[in-house]
Design a protein around this nucleic acid. Structure first.
Lengths: 251, 251
DNA sequence: CGCAGCCTTGACCATTATCAACGCTGGTGG
DNA sequence: CCACCAGCGTTGATAATGGTCAAGGCTGCG
């Protein structure tokens, strides 16, 4: 248990140290602005779990009994249509919380997409703690506000951006979210598969693949490895993401 | 000022009386769960404004100086791309709040889409009040959670639903949001134009028009007037919205 | 070495956008 | 009071973006 507690604290403190203004992962989370006392309060009621790739944290419609904090790894949050179509509404990384929300069933599913460790809280205890600590509640509200802003950006992307613009936006925004890659935001680590990117951007794997190829041949990016992309022309990628690059329109 | 205060209270109380579980307008708002004391606290710092159709409450990028509460009418919240493409991220109605969020500039624009009255609060005073009243903060957090859930639903819609499914979902969800039409949820009042519906659903006006026509000829809905739709077969519309109606696929 | 899973590429197709014309309605001014 | 005009909505023809289907390649693991 000691190990658990220190892990949570370390992780949360690391996130807190980041200038956490834009790290808007899509589901509920609290990354920064937690005081040491808040962290200790959380530690005291924490439980721990190791999750393998594909393992489920929570399933859409299930009773909402726990709140999770991710201490390492990555998680996908998604909703399903009855026929299996999937929309990933966000990726979560170390420091993010999942499973808040006042309903008694979860409105979405969450699964690990790589080996992931989480701290688990029983929801009742978690909320009891929050009610005692206004600073925690304020931090949650602030976090929710950021989430909502990020969700609005994503709606703009899904509703009005072209495939090319979506992929460009994704490459630019991802490093802000994934804490592993804050050193150089021009190196993008893709902890998710093409299928997951596709379901996040409302596209298909083939389209993702094709758009990445076009950007490669345009000299905007290149692949360091299959899951690591180097952005060679960040300004140009930004222009593409905002629909301003009319030069690179045709392959 | 007396009139203002009573208006706000009345409105907020009416919303509070509704079972406010699903009234998830897309931007920040607090509709229910406000205690009488909270309402009085709000009233004390409220200011008032009348807005005509098309008038701006706030503009994307502007300094965020005020928080608004809508007392009557409808408001569109949207984001723009540099080339003018627009995504409406939500419609707000009586009882909803706009302009919360911790940034010092607004991340979106908001405009009245019909004659609308709002109560205005200076943001600093508003937050000062909230900090004093944990119950208000809790209500806001709860509201934010609902907003976030609604935003995730909208991402599913924008990323993975067909035009037909989007329009069907829209018709079903709108009455839950607009407090004017809670009496009979099978009568849908459209306080927005086709262009606004299109920009909300990530489609064009032509597609909206065509899909409505198809639903009319399929006998699922009919127009009471240009801005009033009667849902004749709610279950069927629900099935269409969830992608389950394979009968009505072809006109 | 071979297989499985993921990614890429190509050919073709379908959904929805675009462009265009027309109709309805409500307001204004002759 | 009527005619015209502007704004919005509908419908049709055509085009294009992105999806579907299919084949083949790469990589890592047993």
């Amino acid at each position: 248990m000691l190990e658990v507690r220190s892990q949570l604290s370390t992780c949360a403190k690391r996130r807190a140290a980041n200038a956490c203004t834009t790290c808007g992962a899509r589901a509920f989370s609290v990354c920064g602005s937690l005081s040491p006392e808040d962290l200790e309060g959380l530690d005291a009621i924490a439980d721990r779990a190791q999750m393998t790739t594909g393992e489920t944290l929570m399933r859409q419609g299930d009773a909402a009994g726990h709140v999770f904090n991710i201490t390492s790894g990555s998680v996908r949050v998604f909703k399903l249509l009855p026929d299996g179509r999937r929309q990933i509404t966000g990726f979560l990384f170390a420091g993010d919380f999942v499973g808040l929300g006042s309903g008694d069933t979860h409105a979405f599913s969450a699964e690990a997409i790589e080996p992931t460790t989480v701290c688990r809280f029983r929801k009742a205890e978690y909320w009891a703690l929050i009610r005692q600590r206004p600073s925690l509640e304020a931090a949650l509200l602030d976090r929710a506000t950021h989430e909502l802003a990020a969700a609005q950006d994503q709606m703009l992307l899904l509703g009005r951006k072209t495939a090319r613009e979506r992929v460009a936006s994704f490459l630019l925004d991802l490093p802000d979210r994934d804490p592993i890659r804050t050193v150089d935001s021009n190196e993008v680590r893709l902890s998710m598969t093409r299928a997951e990117i596709a379901d996040y951007l409302g596209l298909t794997i083939e389209t993702i693949s094709r758009e990445l190829t076009k950007m490669k041949t345009a000299g905007i990016i290149h692949m360091v490895s299959l899951n690591e992309i180097r952005i060679d022309q960040p300004e140009r990628l930004r222009a593409v993401a905002d629909g301003l690059d009319h030069a690179a329109e045709r392959r």
